[in-house]
Design a binder for these strands. Structure first.
Lengths: 242, 242
DNA sequence: AAGTGGTCTAGACCACAGC
DNA sequence: CTGTGGTCTAGACCACTTA
């Protein structure tokens, strides 16, 4: 093989050169599921220390190209999703119509004492019992978002007892006779945490859109639900009209 | 000081323990702009090798908590902002009003024929010449977002000729006598594309929030600017009030 | 048992910032 | 010049996977 692959006097770090080399190799010769040569092999191939190879592979891990499997090796991952702007258009979903046409599955339902963030948003004392419901929403059968709902227990006994899927807001309106108003939303993006990637059937290196919102009793204005929604970012464009 | 900070037999890696310790220290005792003790000092403080400290700081860098400055030290970064999207919200004004210093740097300025997405948003014929300006916005000296602005050339000759940084909307108001209104915004998240990660000084596996918005002449309603903004997701929470 | 990645140490030299 | 972070080497031991 052509040697002189690595130039120790080019000004570019060795790990960076090795990283670029491996990246090209992955794109040209390797397929998802294939394994890179072991770190030891790469180290002797490039005539560098194993740590330098590790640093190079770190770059690939960060770029989402490979995954390290302890005791097995370093595996090439499937390529990232296509983020083409035009393709996304059909997935556009408005905040206001969220929940209307989706299937909903309850993943977890617990009663817990409200901690800092939750108690602040719901304007209740810390430690007050709240219902914590984790739901998975599906669109056309495909996972779309995961939502953590928090509701004060004393206002939502029926939700804790009977809610078992479907539109939570419709349930609340039907059982409690309360209509909800979204007050404000905080939007950011992050990599999926906890089991979210699994529930959403998405890679862990692909981002989710996280929307925190507070829903209040339409009449009294009292906060009734604090929701943290994580959308698969590749399936959604939030549309905000002002 | 209380020793036994680091437990070599807890099963948790040293760098992870040190990382958690530093994170707590940052939140409790340090402010944005402060510097961590040097790697050497931390190494001797925790009685570990400097490399182990570096590995711990790597975690903080990835989490967006600190930034390494070659030859100076490791600086604590400001926490994420809440950035409110309302009709009149403007990047420069809204942050300046909160006492944040902002800066704007033009990365590229070109005249190109409008392609599908751009022509549709600006309601002009495909192929019509538009000014394409790429700007980098800094807050408190740190990269915050990259914006691609598209403006119809025939309405924005002065922008093409003279705009050289600072608030674009203030420039338009001053030179063209036109005030702008945001019409609607489309929000999603993705991994940084092109040179965005480099300009934003962020890892390529950390997500950006992308906001597409159309700004119209306040009086006539004619679209004058189509902007695609990419925020470092770890530095922003968009606040939407409906 | 052999091979893989994960962590830690020890020491070296470099490039950059600031006095 | 000194101190900082950036890179690289050499060697060790561990934990996990597979055979």
């Amino acid at each position: 093989m052509t040697l002189g692959l690595i130039n120790r006097n080019s000004g570019e770090s060795l790990y960076s050169q090795i990283s670029r080399f491996l990246e090209a190799d992955i794109k040209e010769r390797l397929s998802p599921g294939d394994f890179l040569p072991s770190e030891q092999e790469l180290a002797s191939y490039f005539s560098v220390n194993r740590h330098t190879v590790r640093r190079a592979i770190d770059e690939l891990v960060l770029a989402g190209l490979v995954e390290r499997l302890h005791g097995k090796g370093t595996m090439v991952l499937a390529p990232a999703f296509d983020y083409c702007i035009e393709q996304k258009t059909r997935f556009t979903e408005s905040l206001a119509s969220r929940g209307k046409s989706t299937d909903s599955k309850v993943l977890r339902k617990l009663v817990i004492p409200a901690t800092g963030g939750v108690s602040k948003k719901l304007k209740i004392k810390e430690g007050t019992e709240v219902v914590w419901i984790e739901t998975l929403r599906l669109v056309e059968g495909a996972p779309f978002c995961v939502i953590s709902h928090f509701l004060p227990l004393n206002q939502a006994i029926e939700v804790n007892t009977y809610y078992n899927g479907g539109s939570l807001h419709a349930f609340i309106k039907r059982k409690l006779g309360v209509e909800l108003n979204r007050k404000s939303s905080l939007i950011t993006a992050m990599l999926p945490q906890g089991d979210d990637a699994r529930h959403l059937n998405m890679p862990t290196n692909s981002p989710v859109l996280r929307v925190k919102s507070v829903n209040c009793n339409k009449v009294t204005g009292v906060p009734l639900e604090y929701a943290i929604t994580r959308f698969r970012a590749d399936r959604i464009q939030l549309e905000v009209n002002l």
